[in-house]
């Protein structure tokens, strides 16, 4: 018994010593240190970041691959948390570039912002982000924002094209996350801006807490709700043939994809590449890209991005 014990103890000790030696070896190469930039005669490495959802990662890949093709030294840093983390990361140089959404980015700086159209929001952003030593480039026409969505059948049966047409549908049930019942662009705005739901009982609300995800789509397609808040780049719009109602009164703020770069890394060449991408990236492109990554194909963000860049001829 005692010899067996001693053998075990020796073994454990040996493993512990081995592990310490191995760890000491690691210590000499700090994994968090900035990558070697000995070959950086052309300038510093650009680190492109992304938020922690597939769409952001796809746009990150598009930026990174296009910049790499244009001769920049590029690295990526996906899955960073909310803006409370990405903005400090841009300021301290852990990342230098991230695909943003213009409306939400402005809301980070000014929660009470009143700008709604793409032009207004982009204009306001220039000043807002300058405070943190950042700048925005051209926004893309593609945007990912809340939208009033109905099925094709509902739209055709009631002749619906814009949000105001919902007056023809009352009484109906609307499905969305619970905050939609009181946010200005939600049910209160529907009533104040479009006059839909002025009578009590016109618009019933069903809280479905998955941000326009599969549960909300299910409730819409099986008729539990007639209208739902689903984001404009949801692949379900394509796969379930849903109709996004137009918003001529700009009730919902624009959320165009826009590159946010730090002043430290800005060059005109960089801006040319990114503005070239923005000029091409539409909402339909974003839906198709997300469908490839999140749908049955399960393509990697990198593959989807590369194919899109190839198709648009942006890899010169």
């Amino acid at each position: 018994m005692s010899t067996a014990h001693r053998t075990t103890r020796l073994l454990v000790g040996g493993i512990a010593v081995g592990a310490m030696v191995a760890l000491a070896g690691c210590a000499s190469a700090d994994p968090t240190a900035p990558a070697d930039s000995a070959d950086g005669a052309t300038g510093d490495q650009i680190v492109v970041g992304s938020f922690a959802f597939p769409e952001s990662e796809i746009t990150m890949e598009i930026y990174a691959q296009a910049l790499e093709a244009a001769g920049f030294d590029v690295d990526t840093q996906p899955n960073i948390g909310p803006r409370q983390q990405t903005i400090p990361a841009l300021q301290d140089g852990s990342i230098n570039l991230i695909p943003e959404f213009n409306g939400n980015l402005l809301a980070y700086y000014d929660p009470e912002y009143t700008e709604r159209t793409t032009e207004e929001v982009d204009a306001a952003l220039v000043q807002a982000v300058a405070v943190d030593g950042l700048q925005v480039l051209d926004s893309a026409p593609g945007e990912d924002k809340d939208a009033y969505v109905v099925t094709r059948e509902t739209a055709e049966a009631n002749d619906l094209t814009e949000i105001g047409d919902l007056s023809a549908l009352v009484p109906f049930t609307l499905g969305a996350n619970s905050q939609f019942a009181e946010l200005p662009y939600g049910i209160p705005g529907l009533k104040d801006v479009y006059g839909v739901g002025v009578n009590p009982g016109d618009v019933e609300f069903l809280a479905i807490e998955d941000f326009g995800g599969p549960d909300t789509v299910q409730a819409l397609t099986d008729g539990t709700v007639q209208v739902a808040d689903i984001y404009t780049t949801s692949p379900a719009i394509l796969t379930e043939d849903l109709v996004v109602l137009e918003d001529p009164e700009a009730l919902i703020s624009s959320q165009n994809v826009i590159p946010l770069v730090s002043d430290a890394i800005y060059t005109d060449e960089l801006a040319d590449v990114l503005n070239g991408i923005s000029a091409e990236l539409t909402t339909d492109d974003l839906i198709a890209l997300r469908d490839r990554v999140e749908g049955d194909e399960k393509a990697s963000a990198g593959t989807a991005a590369a194919d899109w860049l190839e198709e648009k001829g942006l890899l010169e």
Binding site: G175, N177, S178, Q179, A181, E182, L183, L206, A207, I208, E209, D210, D215, A219
Partner: peptide, 19 residues
């Protein structure tokens, strides 16, 4: 239960989180 649209006190908490 509030996560999938069924009522109860959870709805207060989730509405609070959302807003």
């Amino acid at each position: 239960a509030a996560y999938i649209g069924v009522g109860g006190l959870g709805r207060i908490i989730l509405t609070g989180i959302g807003t």
